[in-house]
């Protein structure tokens, strides 16, 4: 034993202690516990949503999101870093936006990625679409905006019957055909692939389809059903009757209380993370924080833990 340690334990009685046996028994016990829980309770696995489901079950909402992508009014189009240079979802800590400092690293252009790109890829087999795209591209920006605005008004009056969407006729130029083709691509399942496609053969990055899915009603409705919304402690909840990430209770608590829900609402995420970072640092540095580091001395739980030791005068 090292000299300092020997000095530290001067006068302390030692007893045999089998660490290896303890580990083996603990591993066996945890293994049995986990096998029993898994066998009895299984695990949550709610199937993922697809763009196909979204386009089929909520065609009006799907087309609205496509139109918002085209005219630049959508949430993704206005998001800001790291996707683009807008400011819709940019958050600040005081005067500083770390989000802006890091800049655009994962470029997403909704008009190109969600509308024009997928349509371009299918125009070869669809002369009417090719013509519509040509008309749209060569039109002045003001005309494009006029068509988009007219389509937006018509879409609000659209009738949705199951997966079928009937839009009143409008002077929307090529936009009508473009949107109807996008709906067909969505409902056929082709859009799920088209949004995923990069120039590579293999795909592992779901940024574009997930960003699109993020703002669909279908996503929000399903999350609401399972009580996963951030405003209702959703961060620590799980689909079904399963425990979630209960260890995130402190972080998600902040999303329920003022000033995070009131004065700081525009920057909730950034300020909640800042708060949790500060609290984590406090926990980390607890041994050196005067007052806090004496808390366990004041709360007499240690007397219970070591009661045998105290009762036997240090010889037990």
């Amino acid at each position: 034993m090292m000299a300092t340690k020997r000095a530290y334990y001067a006068g302390v009685r030692f007893a045999p202690y089998d660490l290896v046996k303890e580990f083996v028994f603990a591993l066996a016990a945890v293994t049995v516990l986990v096998i029993v829980l898994a066998a009895l309770l299984s695990s949550p696995d709610v199937p993922s949503l697809t763009i196909k489901t979204v386009a089929t079950q909520t065609p009006q909402n799907y087309v609205q999101l496509e139109l918002d992508s085209l005219d630049g009014n959508g949430d993704v189009a206005g998001y800001g870093p790291p996707y683009n240079h807008q400011s819709g979802s940019v958050q600040y800590i005081g005067p500083v936006s770390v989000q802006n400092l890091f800049g655009v690293h994962i470029p997403v252009n909704p008009a190109r990625d969600y509308v024009l790109g997928p349509l371009e890829q299918t125009r070869r087999s669809d002369p009417a679409l090719a013509a519509a795209l040509q008309t749209f591209r060569t039109a002045p920006a003001t005309t494009q905006s006029k068509w988009e605005a007219a389509y937006n008004s018509a879409l609000l009056k659209a009738k949705q019957q199951g997966s079928k969407l009937t839009i009143p006729s409008c002077s929307c130029g090529p936009v009508t055909l473009m949107m109807s083709r996008l709906l067909a691509l969505g409902q056929s399942g082709a859009m799920d692939g088209l949004l995923l496609t990069s120039r590579h053969f293999y795909q592992t990055d779901y940024t574009r389809p997930l960003l699109f899915m993020n703002y669909t009603d279908a996503m929000a409705n399903k999350a609401t059903k399972y009580n996963l919304l951030g405003s209702t402690w959703g961060v620590m909840n799980e689909t079904g009757n399963y425990p979630g990430q209960a260890w995130l209770w402190l972080y998600t608590l902040l999303y329920q209380i003022p000033p995070y829900t009131t004065a700081w609402a525009a920057n909730t995420d950034a300020l909640a993370i800042l708060t949790v970072t500060i609290l984590s640092l406090l926990l980390l540095l607890l041994p050196w924080i005067p007052g806090l580091n004496r808390l366990p001395r004041i709360i007499p739980v240690y007397r219970l833990i070591w009661r045998h030791h105290y009762r036997t005068g240090g010889n037990g």
Partner: peptide, 24 residues
């Protein structure tokens, strides 16, 4: 087990039965 969970609601506190059991 996959049906939406039951929740306890006290003031601003909202917690699922499963999470409550784990914490308890």
């Amino acid at each position: 087990m996959d049906a939406p969970a039951h929740y306890f609601h006290w003031g601003f506190i909202l917690i699922s039965t499963a999470n409550l059991i784990v914490i308890a």
